[in-house]
């Protein structure tokens, strides 16, 4: 399926960019005319993925976080959040609710929240190379599905 629109943005892995990242994706997704709730869900999922890249991917170091987002005519958005950080040794374990290596009051709910707020979440990771999280979400308004 061919995307009808696409954007990419990259930024330094400083925590001040977490709000920038979710705002920029939300602004792009607005083209699909989503509901306020759908947009809030998307922002939350993006915030989790970007925070993971900054807190875990790059840990104490500074790197670049890459986001690409694609919009489809079916009303779907696919957001990819990529880092070139340390990678995740065990993706399955990392995705378990409450599992965290973050300390400092991280709830360990990042992936659980992404999964609850999106239709599908895919994670690819290689040790020492980085992690890519892909979020899929349909932003189709109810009642417009049969148009």
């Amino acid at each position: 399926m061919k995307a009808m629109n696409e954007m990419s943005v990259s930024f330094l892995s400083v925590s001040a960019n977490e709000s920038f990242a979710r705002a920029v994706v939300a602004a792009f997704a607005s083209q699909l005319d989503p509901t306020i709730d759908q947009l809030a869900d998307l922002k939350t999922a993006v915030s989790e993925a970007v925070t993971n890249a900054i807190v875990h991917g790059y840990r104490e170091t500074l790197g670049t976080v890459y986001i690409t987002a694609k919009l489809y005519e079916t009303g779907k958005i696919v957001v990819r959040v990529r880092d070139k950080g340390v990678g995740i040794p065990d993706v399955e374990k990392a995705m378990e609710p409450l599992f965290t290596t973050g300390g400092e009051e991280r709830a360990g709910l990042g992936f659980a929240v992404m999964q609850s707020f999106c239709d599908k979440v895919a994670v690819r990771s290689a040790l020492g190379k980085g992690t890519t999280v892909t979020l899929h979400k349909s932003l189709l308004r109810r009642g417009r599905e049969h148009e």
Partner: peptide
């Protein structure tokens, strides 16, 4: 107006 799971950590703490 917005919170992510960091807010959950905040409440839990």
């Amino acid at each position: 107006p917005f919170m992510d799971s960091s807010g959950v950590g905040l409440i839990l703490g």
